[in-house]
Simulated assay, not measured.
Amino acid sequence: MIVRERPSYLELFFTLKGSVIRRVWPQCLFVMVLSAAVVGGHAWRPGLVPTLDGTPFSLVGIALSVFLAFRNSACYDRWWEARKQWGAMVAAARDLARQSLVLEARGEAGHALRRGLIEAVIAYVRELVDLLRGVAPVSQWRFPADARLREAGMRLAVARAGGLVSDIEFSILDGSLKELCHAAAACERIRTTPVPFGYTLLLHRTAHIFCFLLPFGFADVIGWGTPIVAGLVAYTFFGLDALGDEMEEPFSLHSSAVPIGAIAGMIEINLREALGETNLPDLPRPVDGVLL
């Protein structure tokens, strides 16, 4: 996620970090070069380059804009849902740290149980980051990080059977583990269920065909201004297409992705601080304006 102060209006025109220009500049350059060639062909060889009516481009452009807005809205919903689920995990982890304070009054056994629960949650969120980012092996039907929550649940079950934890305390602590599990399951759903490929394919093809044909409809209307206008239109359509691709994968390492690594680091700091530790990990910081 891009973390920086909002640039000035002039800087907005020249800022590259966080923009999609690095991904789409080849297509934009091709459209501008094609536009210049079409305009030159109309000027020097009028019968060689075909002329198209510009009216249909307005209708197609409106339809394409609506379709782009629909897909980007769907992709942003995925991004925002991912951020909400990690926010829920932060709240559940903090709740567990607070709720487990009652165990400190049970002596060494209670302290060991509380530390075991919190260490299991720390390991869980760390492994979850690797799983969602594809660093650790994962399949659609197997979710290895869940073993950490099962470990914590087993500790609670043993403590309950031994009388260290009451039924009410077990229900409360297990409820926080359940919230962590539900949030992770939602993240797993987002990761394994992409936006239907047909939407992406249709939009990608239509945007490219539209931008490649655009110079033939505008060459006679705006002349040598066609490369600039066509380049701006191409930057807008190709850029929105690329931005949708980034938001569709909110757990990736793109600069627009949800900073789940930083959130997991913040959870670890909160939980270790709740244990009374003073040698805490460093706070997550952005690198070159990007927080991962």
Rank of each mutant, 00 (worst) to 15 (best):
I21H: 03
T51F: 05
I118N: 09
V60T: 07
H182L: 12
L52E: 06
D282C: 13
L101P: 00
F237G: 01
L180S: 04
V31H: 01
G41Y: 03
R155H: 00
E249N: 07
F212D: 03
V165L: 10
E273I: 03
F251G: 01
A157E: 09
R126L: 15
F70K: 08
R83S: 11
A136D: 05
M32K: 07
L164G: 05
L128N: 14
V38A: 06
A112I: 09
L283P: 11
S139G: 12
A186S: 11
A91V: 15
E119Q: 15
S166R: 09
Y76Q: 15
F30R: 02
T15I: 05
K17W: 03
D174H: 05
G162T: 00
G239A: 01
V195R: 08
L291Q: 09
V221M: 08
I222V: 08
W80H: 11
I209K: 00
V39R: 02
P194K: 02
R272F: 06
V90S: 15
W141C: 10
R45A: 10
A37V: 09
E127P: 11
G18M: 02
T278S: 12
A74Y: 12
A36C: 05
R45N: 01
L29H: 04
M1V: 03
R142Y: 09
L59D: 05
E11H: 07
A242C: 09
S65H: 05
A157G: 09
A37D: 03
R126D: 14
P281S: 10
E179T: 06
R71S: 07
F251R: 02
R114H: 00
M1R: 06
E277H: 11
R114T: 07
N72S: 14
P281A: 14
A219P: 02
G223V: 01
L180K: 00
I267G: 02
Q85R: 10
H204K: 06
L275P: 13
A234W: 04
A145I: 02
N279R: 15
F67R: 08
R115V: 06
G217Y: 06
M1A: 06
A145Q: 07
G198M: 05
L173D: 01
R98C: 11
G239H: 02
L132M: 12
E81Q: 12
I222L: 06
D282W: 13
R285P: 07
I21K: 01
A230M: 10
R22I: 02
V129L: 12
L68H: 14
F143Y: 12
K84G: 14
T15Q: 06
F57A: 10
N72Q: 13
V229P: 00
V102Q: 14
W141I: 13
P250Y: 04
E249H: 07
A161V: 00
